[in-house]
């Protein structure tokens, strides 16, 4: 998907507030591992793309992924790398809840797990998803493509990630609808014979 620049649409979306400065990027791989994604986000092309867009802090939830930890220092919050020109990086494996991390982030780059997608889009935060091609049953790709087609997020691949970061315009993302509990409530009420919906 290409995303041509359109300054006139910059204020059209609720996702991007003009007052908000971009600082934090969160990368999450979920409960297992995704070596290629973790390695890619720590590589120079992605870091350069992030710097170019003004991000200065990168947090990586790496799960059980393997990556080159050279140059990182073990600290209380995780493996930390502070670079003189650019981006501070923190890498850790798991946290009980990522909700707080999503809130702090100005951009989330994630595996295409449906739970993460729902949590991030509902906040809302701009989201780039990278489906893991090594998964056997790759329905994650279908979900990423379908939501990408609707404009709610930006699907990418590991190799296209720098380009996805550079060309993502938050304002062009379509706001994701809020949770609508009435749909299932009405379905079940109907199924169980409640004709009036308000009891």
């Amino acid at each position: 998907m290409s995303e041509p620049l359109s300054p006139s649409q910059a204020s059209a979306s609720a996702i991007e507030s003009p007052l908000r400065t971009r600082t934090n990027v969160l990368v999450t791989v979920g409960s297992t591992r995704f070596d290629a994604l973790v390695q890619a986000v720590l590589s120079e092309p992605v870091l350069a793309a992030l710097r170019a867009r003004g991000y200065s802090r990168l947090t990586v939830q790496c799960g059980n992924s393997e990556f080159d930890a050279n140059g990182f220092e073990q600290q209380e919050e995780g493996l930390v790398q502070t670079t003189e020109n650019g981006i501070d990086i923190v890498v850790w494996k798991f946290r009980p809840s990522l909700e707080e991390e999503y809130e702090k982030a100005d951009l989330v780059i994630s595996h295409a797990g449906s739970g993460t997608i729902l949590d991030v889009l509902r906040l809302p935060r701009p989201l780039i998803v990278v489906p893991n091609p090594t998964l056997l049953d790759n329905h994650q790709q279908e979900l990423a493509d379908a939501l990408g087609l609707l404009g709610h997020l930006r699907p990418s691949t590991v190799s296209e990630l720098p380009q996805a970061i550079e060309t993502l315009r938050d304002s062009k993302l379509v706001p994701f609808p809020p949770f609508n509990g009435s749909r299932f409530r009405e379905l079940l009420d109907e199924e169980m014979g409640y004709v009036d919906s308000d009891g």
Binding site: S114, H139, E142, D145
Partner: peptide
């Protein structure tokens, strides 16, 4: 009980 199956939001083009 009446049985109600709800397919996951993650299933777009193929059933689980």
């Amino acid at each position: 009980p009446r049985l109600i199956y709800i397919e996951s939001f993650a299933r777009v083009r193929s059933l689980s």
